[in-house]
């Protein structure tokens, strides 16, 4: 009798365990789907943000900027048409032209700050060369392969943004004077690796990662999140007093590329 009751209990227990296992599996699937969806959403958000930056930058540069150029040309024409004796008028037009020039320069800087057009017009390599030159007070050496593999717009943007962030950190916080940026493809062109080394003060990694988190997702923390979204790897090495090294690897063909 006791034996029969026991085996009934065992049977019941087995069924419950099976039930729990099934529920567990269903939850796990649900969780994975949710995670997948969240990542997909985060990538869309990033893509839309970059696209908005691209559009505003272009509008500033090609819309507002070009109108200012046309205005300058108009002032030139008016000035050329003034009689020789109208020196005061010509002086006034010259000052107006200078003001337009200043506004144009500001518009250009603002546009570049949002997203440098060179990245879309001439590609990653030219954009990195420009970036390397444009950081003040920092000697940047660039090591690029003779031929870069084909890199999608998104990955190009990501590589550019990481480089920008790293160089800006090096110039603002680290006291570095020299930085080396190296980009190369490996694993048969399936992966691209970016390494950025500086000779600055270095820092505690945990501190570096949390800095900038509370802001707008910039900083190293934000960088790591983005690289994660593209199935990439981020490796940071630093010893206080001995410089800082960022190394990222990104798959050139992301598994999520063809998602709906």
């Amino acid at each position: 009798m006791g034996m029969a009751a026991d085996s009934a209990n065992v049977g019941e227990l087995g069924r419950r365990i099976d039930d729990l296992m099934r529920q567990h599996a269903a939850l796990l699937t649900q969780l994975q789907q949710d995670q997948h969806r969240t990542r997909h959403l985060a990538r869309s958000v990033w893509r839309i943000e970059e696209e908005a930056r691209r559009r505003i930058a272009r509008e500033l540069h090609d819309g507002v900027g070009q109108n200012l150029v046309a205005l300058m040309r108009q002032l030139d024409v008016i000035s050329a048409g003034l009689p020789a004796a109208a020196t005061a008028g010509r002086e006034g037009l010259l000052r107006a032209r200078e003001l337009v020039q200043l506004t144009l320069d500001d518009t250009r800087s603002l546009s570049r700050l949002l997203r440098p057009q060179i990245l879309d017009d001439l590609g990653l390599e030219s954009a990195l060369r420009w970036l390397a030159r444009s950081i003040e007070g920092l000697a940047v050496t660039l090591e690029l392969p003779e031929q870069l593999p084909e890199i999608s717009d998104e990955i190009s943007t990501l590589i550019f943004r990481v480089s920008q962030e790293a160089l800006s950190n090096a110039s603002r916080h680290s006291g570095a004077t020299q930085v080396k940026v190296a980009l190369n493809a490996h694993a048969n062109g399936q992966w691209i690796r970016l390494e950025i080394d500086d000779n600055g003060r270095g820092c505690e990694l945990s501190q570096a990662l949390s800095a900038g988190r509370e802001g707008h997702g910039s900083g190293l923390g934000g960088m790591r999140d983005r690289i994660d979204l593209f199935d990439g790897k981020l490796d940071l090495q630093s010893t206080p007093g001995k410089g800082f090294r960022i190394s990222i690897e990104l798959p050139l063909r992301s598994a999520m590329r063809n998602d709906p």
Binding site: H61, D62, G65, Q66, V69, R108, Q117, I118, D121, L122, S126, R129, W130, R133
Partner: peptide, 11 residues
């Protein structure tokens, strides 16, 4: 052009 960066000139 509106572009003054070295890379555009060289291209």
């Amino acid at each position: 052009t509106m572009h003054q960066e070295e890379e555009y000139v060289l291209h």
